[in-house]
């Protein structure tokens, strides 16, 4: 197997980072997720989550929608079609390395 052919070379660096992987895995399984829930799920601070979401948004993998619930500001995150395709490819590469990934 050549170096280029090894499945680890197909692991998308944008996704293959601990926090961003958790974010993508979560968003791939929902229509949309609230900021606070996602922050608690991945166990990071508000600022770190915002930083990673901006990174993913710049890559075209997620969309960020801000609004209000009553007077309370609320932020929703969703995965884009591009992000879903990238995550599916990432899972396929991961599958080739470690076996089946649910």
């Amino acid at each position: 197997m050549t170096a280029d052919g090894h499945p680890r070379n197909r692991l998308d660096d944008t996704i293959h980072a601990p926090v961003r992987l958790s974010i993508m895995a979560a968003l791939a399984n929902a229509d949309r997720i609230d900021f606070r829930y996602l922050r608690d799920l991945v166990e990071v601070s508000d600022s770190l989550l915002s930083k990673h979401m901006t990174h993913l948004e710049n890559a075209g993998y997620v969309t960020i929608v801000k609004g209000y619930q009553g007077k309370r500001p609320r932020t929703w995150f969703s995965i884009t079609d591009t992000g879903r395709t990238a995550f599916t490819k990432y899972l396929a590469a991961l599958h080739d390395i470690v076996g089946e990934v649910r």
Partner: peptide, 20 residues
């Protein structure tokens, strides 16, 4: 979780399952 941690494929697979 530290964003600078190394992420092994096994750990990545486990995290994908947990978050999902």
């Amino acid at each position: 979780m530290n964003s600078d941690d190394d992420l092994t494929p096994e750990a990545a697979a486990a995290e994908v399952g947990r978050a999902a």
